Each structure stands twice: as structure tokens, then as C-alpha cells.
Simulated assay, not measured.
Amino acid sequence: MTGLQKAAAIFKILSVESRVQILHMLKQRSFCVNALARRLGISQAAVSQHLRVLRDAGVVAADRQGYFVHYRVSPAVLAQWQEVTESLLRLEESGEEYEERIRQRCPRTGT
């Protein structure tokens, strides 16, 4: 996957406001589906669907704690996403430089 494809995949995942809110909350601490649903004012099913997309992208991980599953951000993947998006938005960089930077820094990510 090229750097531009990675950036497009990241922005597609973040194109839903609820997912951005979930990521923001999970950066602070881990939450279960019920707590996320209550705080966001959306259904548990909707939260679960958003978490599936985020888990599939590798940016969110799940930890079972008793009867509940708590979700947390994967710092390594979030750092890669930051590099991809910052590199894309860097004004002085050409397309080739961008592709090379992403290839070097994020050789094998899920996005």
C-alpha cells in the first residue's frame, strides 16, 4: 500500500465523527462499549460497529476484564497514523518524498 493509499484509508476511517470521538476518549483511558455508548449518546450496537472498524485498522485493541471487554488505543499505530497524516500535510514535500518517508517509517501497517 502506498503512502497516499495509507493516508486515504486513515481519513476514511476518521471521516465518521463518532469514531473520532471514540479515539479521543480512548486516548485518555480504556472504556467498555456501555460506557462509550452512554458518553456518546449512541446505541451500544453503533459503538460496537465503530470499534470493529477501529480494531480492524489496528488503532484500537481490546482487553477482556472479567465480563467486560475494555478498549484502548494502540500507541504505536496511532504514532504511525500521525506520521502518515503529518507527512501528507507537509507543504514543502513532493509526492515522491512523501512516498519514500512513509515507506521508511511505516513499512507494514494495517492501513
Results as ranks from 00 to 15, higher is better:
Q28I: 15
R29W: 03
S30K: 04
S30G: 06
F31L: 08
F31S: 02
F31M: 06
C32N: 14
C32Y: 07
C32S: 14
V33C: 12
N34E: 15
N34F: 12
A35R: 10
A35W: 07
L36R: 01
L36K: 05
A37V: 07
A37S: 05
R38D: 09
R39K: 15
G41Q: 05
I42V: 14
I42H: 02
I42E: 05
S43N: 07
S43T: 12
S43R: 07
Q44E: 15
Q44S: 14
Q44Y: 12
A45T: 15
A46G: 10
A46K: 06
A46M: 09
A46H: 09
A46S: 15
A46Q: 07
A46F: 09
V47P: 05
V47H: 06
V47G: 09
V47S: 09
S48E: 10
Q49E: 00
H50K: 06
H50V: 03
L51R: 02
L51I: 00
L51A: 01
R52V: 13
V53P: 01
V53Q: 14
L54R: 01
L54G: 01
R55Q: 14
D56H: 10
D56K: 10
D56N: 12
D56L: 09
D56R: 11
A57S: 08
G58D: 01
G58M: 11
V59N: 00
V60H: 01
V60I: 03
V60R: 00
A61F: 08
A62K: 09
A62D: 00
D63A: 09
D63N: 13
D63F: 13
D63V: 13
R64Y: 03
R64N: 03
R64G: 00
Q65N: 07
Q65L: 09
G66K: 05
Y67Q: 14
Y67E: 11
F68P: 05
F68L: 15
F68G: 10
V69F: 11
V69A: 13
V69T: 12
H70I: 07
H70C: 11
Y71K: 08
R72I: 03
R72D: 04
V73M: 04
S74W: 00
S74I: 08
S74D: 12
S74Q: 12
P75A: 08
P75S: 00
A76Y: 08
V77F: 08
L78P: 03
L78F: 13
L78H: 08
A79V: 01
A79D: 01
A79R: 06
Q80D: 09
Q80G: 05
W81I: 02
W81F: 13
W81V: 04
W81G: 00
Q82E: 03
Q82H: 10
Q82R: 10
E83G: 06
E83P: 04
V84A: 04
V84F: 06
E86M: 05
E86F: 10
S87E: 05
S87G: 15
L88N: 00
L88T: 02
R90G: 05
L91M: 13
L91H: 09
L91P: 06
E92K: 11
E92R: 12
E92I: 05
E93G: 10
S94N: 10
G95K: 11
G95I: 11
E96N: 09
E96L: 11
